[in-house]
């Protein structure tokens, strides 16, 4: 991992050209800002998902992304999702794995670690209304992902508005995703709905401090009916954003709140002390995003 960070730092240094930014003051919430036509940006995401109900668990998810302004109101991006997991005795019974990132063949009585490439994604954002010219900013987002053990299509509705002379930024996203994931040797269908929202205050030139909230709902199979609901988990945490003309970064810490809800007995077993762990969630997440327009 240290080698990866050094390599990443080298990429950032190499790409630190004087140019532009289409950044977000949030780690999890998208705004409607897009790059002007013909402009590029490199983004690196590093997300640490830390600790499940017991033992130790660290999932490092990395995303390397190239964004491009197709038109002033249409942006696309291609990114590679990869990472590394390290776990030991993370299951409620004190065993290790298995899980979404831990192989079925993992020895339940030994520590486990593995690096992986999860998927390749292609993102499109179409801004319909600008928060700077219209009553509210509105954009639509679609993102297919393809990986060895994962197929996903995700859509978002993005709302964005600035207040108080553009010093207060508010954004909210409603996302829905249909997924097929290879769990335990079988392709399982599931669906997700997420509501994310955040407020960020520009407390000094170049700096924003904010608060982000995320509600994640999971559904068995494809569809969003009540009968398919499995669980709901909530996250809340602060964000810090720094930006100047040639680069920007956002750091967000999200803590899972102790008010998860289960809608079937299987999911109920994954809720411990009010938090949902299962295969997809952890006690906390820390995300760093760095963007370098060029």
């Amino acid at each position: 991992m240290q080698i990866r960070i050094v390599a990443l730092a080298a990429c950032i240094a190499a790409l630190s050209l004087p140019a532009a930014a289409g950044e977000s003051p949030f780690g999890y919430v998208y705004t409607t800002d897009t790059h002007p036509q013909g402009r590029w940006e490199f983004e690196q995401w590093v997300t640490r998902r830390h600790d499940q109900s017991t033992g130790s668990y660290d999932l490092w998810q990395l995303r390397s992304e190239i964004e491009y302004g197709v038109r002033d109101d249409l942006q696309t991006a291609v990114y590679l999702n990869y990472g590394r997991v390290r776990a030991s005795g993370n299951q409620p019974g004190g065993t290790t794995g298995p899980g979404a990132f831990i192989s079925d063949s993992a020895d339940p009585n030994s520590p486990y670690r593995r690096s992986f490439v999860e998927s390749v994604s292609n993102e499109w954002i179409w801004r319909i209304l600008s928060p700077y010219k219209d009553a509210i900013g509105l954009a639509l987002y679609v993102e297919p992902s393809l990986g060895e053990n994962k197929r996903e299509i995700e859509g978002k509705i993005i709302l964005h508005q600035n207040f108080l002379d553009d010093r207060l930024v508010w954004a909210a996203n409603l996302s829905a995703a249909l997924e097929k994931e290879n769990f335990h040797g079988e392709w399982e269908k599931e669906s997700e709905v997420e509501l994310t929202t955040g407020l960020a205050w520009r407390f000094a030139p170049r700096w924003h401090a904010g608060l982000e909230y995320r509600n994640h709902r999971n559904y068995a199979g494809h569809g969003f009916s009540d009968s398919k609901r499995e669980y709901s988990a909530n996250f809340l945490g602060p964000s810090l954003h720094y930006a100047e003309a040639s680069w920007w970064m956002t750091l967000t810490f999200m803590k899972q709140l102790g008010n998860a809800k289960a809608y079937n007995p299987g999911a109920a077993g994954d809720i411990i002390d009010g938090r949902f762990y299962g295969e997809h969630h952890e006690r906390s997440e820390l995300r760093l995003r760095v963007g370098v327009p060029f």
């Binding site: 240290q2 960070i5 240094a13 630190s16 040639s246």
Partner: peptide, 22 residues
């Protein structure tokens, strides 16, 4: 294990290598 202190190291090169834009 990666220490948290390693994360700011990501930012340092950009800060150092980025030409002043003011």
């Amino acid at each position: 294990m990666v220490r948290w202190t390693a994360l700011p190291a990501l930012l340092a090169p950009a800060a150092i290598c980025t030409p002043a834009y003011a």
